[in-house]
Amino acid sequence: MGGMAGFGSVDVAAVESGHDGWEARAQVVALVSGGMSRFGIEQIPPDKYLNSTYAERWLICAETKLAGNGKVDTASLARWKELFESNQDLLPPRTEDAEGLAKMKESVLTTPLMQQVHDPQFEVGDRVRVRRMRPEPHNRCPRFVRGAIGEVERVPGSDPLPDVSNRSGRVEPVYTVRFESVDLWGDQTDSGEPPFDLLIDLWQSYLEAA
């Protein structure tokens, strides 16, 4: 949504939602069960997306996906919700699994590093243009940089292309590209916004030589 207009000023005092406890837990449940992905979030129709809270988007995503792949069924979701609604003292059942817990600790406490770059198409200092595209729902190339020309600032590593169309799991170099704000938005000096730089990470197939 970079560059979209009409969302008003930033509510800088809004730090915590007041019910972060269950919201954080709901995110974890969604992530761990495989019910959550940014791709899944982006499958939410735009009108619904814009009208829901952050936590609600995670829930919608997880409920839809997990009912779709049979990990839960909607009847049991409704049954549990009714039980919790009618009995304030009731909490979800508890189970333990030592092996699963050990794996969880390992994955939460390990920093995920990118892979080493092999045979990059571009180098630091190269001028690159972001390809024009109309991708399937999820990719990581924001609309506001498409078509713009920037300069490769750094090559942090390689990573699997996150696009939904990348079913093969193809790994590509990722480039940090520096754009000048005038190439994205024009000269905004007169409206109190002197030129600045925008740096963003882009996968190799989003770019072409400029």
Partner: peptide, 22 residues
């Protein structure tokens, strides 16, 4: 929303998809 979140956790635990300690 909180009720839905609780229901989701409960149903997933019930089905053995996730475990509470993790």
């Amino acid at each position: 929303l909180e009720l839905r979140a609780m229901a989701l956790e409960a149903a997933l635990v019930e089905n053995g998809v996730i475990h509470t300690d993790a």
